[in-house]
Each structure stands twice: as structure tokens, then as C-alpha cells.
């Protein structure tokens, strides 16, 4: 599966990259929201994992942009954020996020969740 990771924190980004590559996915990295949007257009990934608070464009805007730009192609979005407050989670889901993982996150758990989307795609 082709996965785009949008995350401005280096260590988390690297950890995710290594992990997902080892799980056999193709990984595209974006270090801010703007880069993420242009790379989504360029590579059209099968899954997007995004932080919320990033420079230029927030993760919530990325969800909205994906929903608006690709209404017929379903690109699942996993939000990965340190802000696990109810409000934020609700807002993310309302905008169309498919999953929400709070930081600190367990890489093992992430693998399992990503696999679920992989299986859904296979169907």
C-alpha cells in the first residue's frame, strides 16, 4: 500500500517511516501540511496518516481538502495527534477522518490499524 505520512516532528516521522516500510508499504514523507497536500496530488496515496498541528496547513484542513478534491476516490485518513481531547476527536471524525490515534502512540498498534485499511482496500 502507498502511504503518505504528514508529520512535522522528525523522530515520529522517522519511526513511522521505518515501521511502515518494514511492514512492506511504500512510504511518502511530508514535513508540513502544504507539502502533504502537494504530495497527495502527485502520488495519490492509498492511505494518509496525518498529524493535526503542522506548519502551513493543519491536519483537519487536509481531511477537508481530501474530501473536497477526491469526492469519488476514497482515501482513508488516520489522524495521529497529541490532542486527544473529545472536541478534537469529534471534529476530526465529523470532517471525515477514518481513525484517530492519540500520541504517545504504540507502533505495534499502528501496524494493526493500517493492516485493517489494507484489507478493506483488498476487498
Amino acid at each position: 500500500m502507498k502511504i503518505l505520512i504528514a508529520e512535522d516532528e522528525e523522530i515520529t516521522l522517522k519511526t513511522l517511516e521505518l515501521r511502515l516500510k518494514r511492514d512492506g508499504h511504500e512510504v511518502i514523507l511530508a514535513r508540513d501540511g502544504r507539502e502533504a497536500l502537494s504530495k497527495i496530488e502527485e502520488h495519490s496515496p492509498d492511505l494518509v496518516i496525518s498529524d493535526i498541528m503542522m506548519p502551513y496547513v493543519s491536519g483537519l484542513e487536509i481531511i477537508a481538502a481530501i474530501k473536497e478534491n477526491y469526492p469519488d476516490r476514497k482515501i482513508p485518513i488516520i489522524i495521529l495527534s497529541g490532542m486527544g481531547q473529545e472536541d478534537t476527536v469529534l471534529e476530526a471524525f465529523q470532517l471525515g477522518a477514518d481513525d484517530f490515534i492519540t500520541k504517545p502512540f504504540s507502533p505495534n498498534e499502528l501496524t494493526v490499524r493500517v493492516r485493517r485499511f489494507d484489507m478493506m482496500k483488498a476487498k
Partner: peptide, 15 residues
């Protein structure tokens, strides 16, 4: 510093 940053973001066995 790097260890702390990683620990802040990662949980589970890795942590």
C-alpha cells in the same frame, strides 16, 4: 533530548 522526544510520542513495547 532525542530520547525524551521519542518517549513523548511513542508508547507500548517500544517505549
Amino acid at each position: 533530548k532525542e530520547l525524551l522526544a521519542a518517549k513523548n510520542n511513542i508508547s507500548g513495547v517500544s517505549a
